[in-house]
Nucleic acid binder design. Structure first.
Lengths: 87, 87
DNA sequence: TGTAAATATACAAAATAGCGTATAAAACTG
DNA sequence: CAGTTTTATACGCTATTTTGTATATTTACA
């Protein structure tokens, strides 16, 4: 939870993880959002140029949401401890 | 901080708020991100369903980041108390 | 209030996302 | 390991975003 989303890849990973947790296929998620299965596939793979709107629709269908955070020392420390930013 | 970003408008508002806090003009932010002043304007107004890439570039230039959260009862209660979701 | 800075907007051109349809490739599963 | 489900990918097409350039409009402030 509370995945860092600093790149399309990270967002895609978060989406895929939660979709599976919900036991949903890409086709089902597409149905729910009005997107094609192929589009969901692209997004999960980190399609960099996806439209914001599209991403938000997918997140919403999975009961997810975005938050805008400042990168403070605290959050950066927390990320390090949680292993974010690792290659 | 930690603004909810459920729509392009909300993201735009967060961006504008922080840009001003940083004492930056739209032109300066555009310079930093390789986007036009006019594009920054559109993003902040939430009019454009901008590309994810573009949003991430702007956020990064402002030392902001996104997090993907599940909408739990807790977060929904917190939002209500903080006045999110009001018309 | 007058002027400079900042922001909103316009228009044609260029780039590209998502669609529809379809299929190939991969992952499950009995 | 054959059959099925799921996921990745392709192509032409249309819609829409971003660009470049330019100019209104608004805001700030001396």
């Amino acid at each position: 939870m509370a995945d860092l989303a600093r790149s399309p890849e990270q967002i895609g990973n978060a989406i895929r993880r939660v979709r599976k947790k919900r036991g949903m296929s890409q086709a089902e998620l597409g149905e729910k959002t009005g997107l094609r299965q192929g589009t969901i596939s692209l997004i999960e793979k980190g399609h960099s140029a996806a439209k914001l709107e599209t991403i938000l629709a997918v997140l919403s269908a999975l009961d997810l949401e975005l938050r805008v955070n400042e990168r403070t020392k605290q959050t950066m420390l927390a990320d390090a401890l949680l292993g974010y930013g690792k290659k």
